[in-house]
Each structure stands twice: as structure tokens, then as C-alpha cells.
Design a protein around this nucleic acid. Structure first.
Length: 549
RNA sequence: GCGCCCGUAGCUCAGCUGGAUAGAGCGACGGACUUCGAAUCCGAAGGUCGCAGGUUCGAAUCCUGCCGGGCGCGCCA
């Protein structure tokens, strides 16, 4: 492995300690940043300023001492002390070129790390009720959850993707009844629909399917038979939508099993034992206010039905027991009022609620020709994920969902997403990849074979644009790591746009395949690396890297 | 009323766990194809980081208050 900037600084400080120019024992975390301005070096660190207090010396003096040690380390071109005590480090070209080789050596592994050191993480996402098709909000959650899982895996975590199926309770009951009504209607009866019934087309379709598949078995169908059928049919549609969106789950966890296995009752009993349960007005309450919630919550209603929250505490108890170092819930932002009570539950069971990380997904506003598409949930007016995938394609859809950080509202411009032009970010990024493929193809057609690491003189990559691209490539592993730790997939999206934004101008100004054989080789070598990183990054996002478009 | 999120260029947004002179893209304007994909590129323009305080060597970033927008506050799921 090639030394990172942090390694270099750490080594220099160790040397200072040996020389007793620095005496502090517990060193602060070494933060390396990439300065915005080239003149501040390739890397900069503020350790000297952080050490100044402990050492009782002016920061610049400490910085000078550290800088002197850094200068002794290989691959350093220049070290400067600047400002209040920044240490600006300039690496030599050889360093960057050796990082370029890393891309070729590691191939699809380039960008991965062991930052997570094999820790187990569960990511639960989508988890839409099987009472209707996935809408666009679920789609955003799906894109974020799936990409996050990819990124966490790349950063060395063991990831389990889970979908919590709300197949119990009132909503599925209503779904079953809605289907039953439609069946009666199909059989020629006059039916009335109460307001809370589901009225979408899919209900009619399921009713039709049921009649086709089951009616011969006997006419009297129990409520639960219809309900199970409807629920399963809905789940199949959801799975199909997700599959076409490139999302697969490791686990489909059924809410019903919690009740069937007595886990809900167990959870309530444990809370009772721990003194968090009381009864009032015929209902059973969980005293969540003792654990940071702003009101107590009902677990069992006066009519003896359990609330949704009752299964939810059992579910989170089970999650906590499963040995994950982190459990991630991806929720729609409208559920944020739920956070406090779920955390209260974890605490009541004796867990540190810091194991739970909740990512809230903000609304998606669909735009068509600059005008927002109305999205009332009533009367089937909402836009489904399926519709958007069909219109703009999976790739554009996923990319757009990942263009903003999750907790910011997202404008999704349908026309832009379809456009085959540079102002469309997905296109711009994919095109860079396709373009490189095309260059390589062109080279091959001219009898030039792809250079190997041994057979290339990368010193020929001496243009500023070339070094800038290499530096960008070199930062990819850190981007992935940061994206994983912060759980922010959108960083990859931005990174890829920036990389494409370096490559296109470079291409326009410089020929890759030209008369100079050695230079052609070196540039092809660079192109290959860009292509590789594009592929790796796009893969995290679940977006394809087309060879041609 | 209480809680969470957001407020950065005309628009859409970045800004990595507090760093140096706040960045992109788009739009608008003006340019570039006999050569690897012009499906691209080049150029200049654009700012009181909502407002006011505070913390410190240093704040878009952290704290407090206010303003504006979204969402949530059920014995619903």
C-alpha cells in the first residue's frame, strides 16, 4: 500500500517526539484536508494548531518542526508552513503516478477499504405497506438504501438489507375487504365503497386474479384467505418493481411472524418487568416519556387490539438482539415523529440507542416542463415508481434520486432526466464512460493494444489536466470511505460528476490516440483508469456504465 | 404551541466531523466540428452563506434568539 497523507504526517510527528521537539502524548486526530487552492498544496493539516495549546508553543513553531520531519519522507516535493500554522504538503509526481497504478492493480476493488472491519450493519428500507404500489418516495428510499448498502460493503462492513413487511393490522385488512368488494362488483353485485377503502386499479386486477385462480375452489372465501391473497399479490408487484429498479433484499421480514411467535407479548412483558408499563382508561401504555419521548404511547388499545407501535418495539428489540453494530432505518421524513419512541423502546430494553441510525428521506417533487406534477395520495393520483422507471429509465431514476442528500427535498425534472445532453448529469457521466470505451475501441482498431503497468511510461502524463485527473482518481477511496461513514451516498454522485467534468475537457483539448506511441500508451493507461473508477462508482449507485449510448 | 428538517449565485444544489480569498451545474450571452463520439468543449458574468448575537486563533459549519418554507404532534398505519 502507498502511504496516505495521514500516514506521512503521523510518521513525522512520531519523529518529532523522538527528537523531543514535541512532548504531547495523546495526539489529536490527524485531519488531512484537500485545500481548495492549489497553492496550499495537495494536502494540508492543522495538527500544529491543535497541538499548540498542549505544547504551550506558538503553532507556527510546531508546524515548522513537523514540516522539517515531513521533508525527510520520500515522495515529498515541498512542505510549507502557512497562515496561522497550516502545514501544506506537496507530493511529487512519482507519488501520484504510483497511485494511478493502484487503480489498475486493484481493478474492481479500487475504492474499497476495510474501514468497517467486518462489522455487521443492517439496513432496513422501503418497507412500504403491501396495500398499494410503490410510489416515487419509496423509490428514493430504495435508491438510497440500496446504494448505501453497496457503499458500506465496499467500505468493509457486512451488510444485511431488510424489508419489513406490514402484513398485519388494519391496513391489510382493508386491502382484503377492498378486493372482496371489487370481486362482488365483478360478479355483478351493486357495491358501495367506504372512504377508507383502496380504490386503485390494482385492487380490481387483484380481484380479477383471485376470481380466476380461486373461485373454483368454492364460493365462500374467508376474510383471511382474500386478505392473504391480496397481500401476497401486492408484495409480488412490489418485488417486481424493486427488481426492475435493481434492488434486491436479503430479508423480507414479516410483521405477522412477530405476533405469531409471541414476540410482541414478550416485548411488552419485558417492558412491564422493567417498570415501563401502566394501564389507563382500559389501554396499556408504555411510559416513553421517561426515556426522552414527549408523550407516552399506547401499546394495547381499549378494544384489545395492539397498535402498530407494539409490533415495532418487538421488531426493534429483535434487531438489537441480532448482533448488528449498527441498525439503519430509512424512513420517509413524515415519520420523524416516530424516532423518539423507537429510541425509547431500545433504551427500555437496555440497549444503547446509538446503535440506531435513522435516515430520513425528504419529499420528491416531480417536475414536468418546469411545472410540479400534483401528487395527492387520494384517488390514485400519486405517481408510481413504475411510471417513472418506464418514462426515464432505471439509470436516470436512480441517479436523480441520489443527486441530493437525503434530508433535502429533491426536484426531479422528468424532461431533464430523459435528455441526451450534457445538462443531464446522468447522461454526462455515462457519456464519459462510453466515450472512453469508444477511444479504446478506436485504438484497438488501429492495432494498438492496451498498455500494461509494466509497458507504460507514465511519466509522460505531465500535463496539469492529467495530474488533476490522477489526483481525482486517487481521492476516490477516501470519498467512498467518507460516504460510508457519513452514510451519504450522494457524495459518490457528486464525485462522478466532477470526474466526468475533468475528463471531457481533457479529451477535447488533447488527443489520446496519436502518432507518438509512448504518449498514446500513457494516455490510454490513464483513460482505462478513469473508466475503471467510473464503473466502480456507478456500480455503487446501481447505475449502468454503458459501452456505447 | 412543541419537536425535526431546510434556508448558500437568477434556478437547482455541494461545501467532507470548525480552517486559508465560499464552489459546481444549469440558465442567459459570445465562441469552437477535414482528426479518437460537437451526445462535447472554451470564455467572461453572477454572493450581506435568511437576520441578530455568542463560543475561539479561526464559523456557511457549533450554541442561543428571531424570520421564512416543509413535515410531524391519534387508543391511525
Amino acid at each position: 500500500m502507498i502511504a496516505t497523507a495521514a500516514d506521512i504526517v503521523r510518521k513525522a510527528i512520531e519523529n518529532c517526539k523522538r527528537a523531543t521537539t514535541i512532548k504531547t502524548e495523546d495526539l489529536p486526530d490527524i485531519i488531512i484536508e484537500k485545500p481548495k487552492r492549489d497553492e496550499f498544496g495537495d494536502f494540508a493539516t492543522n495538527v500544529a494548531m491543535l497541538l499548540a495549546g498542549k505544547e504551550g508553543k506558538p503553532p507556527r513553531q510546531i508546524a515548522e518542526a513537523i514540516a522539517k520531519e515531513i521533508r525527510q519522507i520520500e515522495n515529498i516535493k515541498k512542505v510549507e508552513v502557512a497562515g496561522h500554522g497550516f502545514i501544506n504538503i506537496f507530493m511529487d509526481d512519482e507519488y501520484w503516478l504510483s497511485l494511478l497504478k493502484e487503480v489498475h492493480n486493484l481493478k474492481e476493488k479500487y475504492g474499497t477499504s476495510d474501514a468497517g472491519s467486518g462489522k455487521k450493519v443492517q439496513v432496513e428500507f422501503v418497507s412500504a405497506n403491501p396495500t398499494g404500489p410503490l410510489h416515487i418516495g419509496h423509490g428514493r428510499g430504495a435508491a438510497v438504501g440500496d446504494s448505501l448498502a453497496n457503499i458500506l460493503k465496499a467500505a468493509g462492513y457486512k451488510v444485511v438489507k431488510e424489508y419489513y413487511v406490514n402484513d398485519a393490522g388494519r391496513q391489510v385488512y382493508i386491502l382484503g375487504e377492498s378486493v372482496r368488494k371489487r370481486m362482488e362488483e365483478l360478479q355483478g353485485k351493486d357495491v358501495e365503497f367506504s372512504d377508507d377503502y383502496y380504490k386503485g386499479e390494482y385492487v380490481k386486477e387483484i380481484a380479477k386474479d383471485f376470481l380466476a385462480e380461486r373461485s373454483s375452489a368454492g364460493k365462500a372465501q374467508s376474510t383471511s384467505t382474500v386478505q392473504d391473497f391480496a397481500c401476497e399479490a401486492m408484495l409480488e408487484r412490489i418485488k417486481k418493481d424493486l427488481q426492475d429498479f435493481g434492488v434486491e433484499f436479503d430479508n423480507w421480514f414479516s410483521e405477522k411472524t412477530l405476533e405469531d411467535e409471541g414476540l410482541v407479548n414478550n416485548a411488552i412483558e419485558e417492558l412491564r418487568k422493567n417498570g415501563y408499563i401502566y394501564e389507563d382508561e382500559g389501554a396499556v401504555w408504555f411510559r416513553t416519556t421517561q426515556l426522552g419521548d414527549d408523550k407516552d404511547r399506547v401499546l394495547i388499545k381499549a378494544d384489545n387490539e395492539k397498535t402498530y407501535f407494539a409490533s415495532d418495539i418487538a421488531y426493534h428489540k429483535k434487531k438489537a438482539e441480532s448482533g448488528f453494530s449498527t441498525i439503519v432505518n430509512i424512513w420517509g421524513a413524515d415519520h420523524h415523529g416516530y424516532e423518539a419512541r423507537v429510541r425509547a423502546a431500545l433504551k427500555a430494553f437496555g440497549y444503547d440507542d446509538n446503535i440506531l441510525k435513522i435516515i430520513f428521506i425528504q419529499l420528491v417533487a416531480l417536475l414536468r416542463n418546469g411545472v410540479q406534477v400534483p401528487m395527492g395520495k387520494r384517488e390514485g393520483e400519486f405517481v408510481t415508481l413504475r411510471q417513472v422507471i418506464d418514462e426515464v429509465g432505471k439509470d436516470a431514476c436512480r441517479f436523480f434520486f441520489l443527486m441530493r442528500k437525503s434530508d433535502a427535498q429533491l426536484e426531479f425534472d422528468l424532461e431533464l432526466a430523459k435528455k441526451q445532453a450534457p445538462e443531464n448529469p446522468v447522461f454526462y457521466v455515462q457519456y464519459a464512460h462510453a466515450r472512453i470505451c469508444s477511444i479504446i475501441k478506436h485504438a484497438k482498431e488501429n492495432g494498438i493494444s492496451l498498455p500494461t503497468t509494466e509497458g507504460v511510461d507514465i511519466k509522460l502524463l505531465s500535463l496539469k489536466e492529467e495530474l488533476d485527473i490522477i489526483k481525482k482518481l486517487a481521492s476516490f477511496p477516501d470519498i467512498v470511505k467518507g460516504s460510508a461513514i457519513a452514510m451519504e451516498p450522494h457524495r459518490i454522485t457528486f464525485y462522478l460528476q466532477e470526474l466526468a467534468g475533468l475528463f471531457h475537457p481533457y479529451y477535447n483539448k488533447n488527443r489520446v490516440v496519436a502518432d507518438d506511441k509512448s504518449l498514446t500508451n500513457a494516455r490510454l493507461y490513464l483513460c482505462e483508469a478513469v473508466k475503471r473508477v467510473m464503473q466502480n462508482g456507478l456500480k455503487f449507485l446501481g447505475v449502468s456504465a454503458p459501452e456505447e449510448m
